[in-house]
């Protein structure tokens, strides 16, 4: 059974690229279009990992991560955030909110797969 990854991004092109990369590496992917959608889908399903953008409408990535971490059922799920700024401040805020790791946009699809493998284990 391949790992199931939830990707949360308001950008359809980034979602598509992410999906192509991850499904190409054999993962199962579900998409969400913003933080709120991501939170709802994360709560409704079972995921092995979440990849999320930070700057999104309706609910931003930080708020989504905080909301997920406050629920015992989502403790321990790896959450990787995408960020355009390699901005240290954003990184530490996301980490403080409970994120596991990050990937800096623009990213190589391979790099995303590498990180997925790293976080999910082999």
């Amino acid at each position: 059974m391949s790992a199931h990854i939830l990707t949360v991004d308001d950008s359809a092109s980034i979602r598509l690229t992410t999906k192509i990369a991850l499904t190409g590496a054999g993962y199962q992917v579900t998409e969400a279009v913003d933080g709120l959608d991501g939170l709802n889908k994360a709560k409704a399903g079972t995921f092995d990992m979440i990849v999320t953008d930070l700057n999104m409408p309706n609910m931003n990535g930080l708020a989504m991560i905080e909301a997920l971490r406050s629920s015992p059922a989502h403790t321990g799920i790896p959450i990787i955030f995408l960020t355009t700024e390699s901005d240290a401040e954003m990184k530490s805020r996301a980490k403080a909110a409970g994120a596991t790791g990050w990937i800096t946009k623009p990213f190589d699809p391979e790099q995303l797969v590498k990180i997925a493998k790293k976080v999910l284990g082999k």
Binding site: I20, T23, G24, A25, G26, V113
Partner: peptide, 28 residues
Amino acid sequence: VMEPQARAEASTPAVAEAKNGKAAENVR
């Protein structure tokens, strides 16, 4: 570098398979 790429190419149809009914509510 090559390995993941080759794998990605080999399995692009998987993208189509991934639409197992759990996709977003909107379809373009």
